Simulated scan of single mutants.
Amino acid sequence: MTLYKQNFRIILTYLIVLVLPSACAQLFKLTPQIFLLTTIFDLLGALGLLVFNRRRTANSLEYHPAPLKTIIMWGISGILLTLLVQVLAGIVDHLIFKNSANSLNTITLMTAMRQQPWLILAVTIAAPVMEEIVFRGAIFGGLSGTINPLWAALISSLLFSLLHQDGHLIIYAAIGLFLCWLYRKTGSLYTTIISHAGMNLLVTLTYLLR
């Protein structure tokens, strides 16, 4: 199977995982269990994408990956750097669009998490794993072999931003661009998965402990 087909399979699987919880909730009248369904499908989706990604042919960014120690170091450092990028992008977003610093998407998830704590698994583990494999690995990594990496990063980050659907396009795009840079620097998705998951965990704990 070519890299193009492997990446297409990854993206298609991700889209199916996004749609299935709502589809099942509507079909089987399980709307009150929507967050439980989301968590289950997200965890299964993350596991499936990890398997697909493991079997995927290396793209042009992964030919010379950094040593494991460097990957872990950058992954942990990237947690704080991603948060810094988010704060700076939030300032720019407010200056240009007058958007509130609070994300409706995040507030909705955090409110639900107080009543349904298992949702933390979807937010801090499943979502970062899937998003890194899809947006950084399949889209940015896949496109980098055929077009300029900067354009590939911009396309990947714009799609990543649009996916979150809460109006903070600059914030999510900036985070996406930083994670693309981190992926290119280390040649490993594990770096960005650590950074993304760690950032989500810190944001989640901050909201829940307020």
Rank of each mutant, 00 (worst) to 15 (best):
T192R: 07
Y207S: 07
L158R: 06
Q26A: 15
N99R: 07
S161A: 15
Q86T: 09
A25S: 09
G145L: 12
I194K: 02
T186C: 09
L44C: 13
T39M: 03
I194G: 05
M130Q: 15
V87I: 10
G187Q: 06
I133H: 14
L104F: 03
Q116E: 11
H164V: 04
Q26E: 14
A152T: 10
L88G: 04
D93M: 04
I194H: 04
A23K: 07
D42C: 02
N200W: 04
D93K: 00
A101Y: 13
Y63D: 05
A122T: 06
I107A: 12
A25N: 06
V87N: 00
L68H: 10
G198A: 10
S156T: 10
Q115K: 12
Q165K: 11
A66L: 08
Y183F: 15
P128W: 03
T186W: 03
P117W: 14
A25C: 04
N7A: 07
R114T: 05
M199A: 15
L84Y: 02
L50F: 04
L80D: 03
A197Y: 06
E131K: 10
L80W: 13
N53S: 15
L154I: 15
I170D: 06
I175V: 15
M113D: 02
I72D: 05
P32N: 02
S77R: 13
W181C: 13
L44S: 08
T192D: 07
Y183L: 12
L49E: 01
Y63H: 12
G48D: 06
S60Y: 05
L30T: 00
G137D: 07
G75F: 08
L121P: 02
L205T: 10
L201A: 15
A138Q: 05
I91T: 07
V51F: 14
R114Y: 04
L208I: 09
L179N: 11
A66R: 02
A138F: 03
N200R: 01
L169G: 08
A66Q: 09
G141C: 11
L104I: 05
Y207P: 02
I10L: 05
N59V: 09
A138V: 06
L169N: 08
I125Y: 08
L169T: 13
G198Q: 09
A89K: 04
W74C: 15
P65L: 03
G145E: 11
W118L: 10
L68Q: 13
A46R: 05
W74Y: 15
S60P: 00
L47V: 11
P117R: 11
L43I: 14
E62K: 05
V87D: 01
W151T: 10
I147W: 11
L12G: 03
V123S: 00
V17S: 00
L158Q: 07
N105T: 01
A58W: 02
I194W: 05
T186H: 07
L3Q: 13
S22Y: 13
S60N: 06
L119R: 02
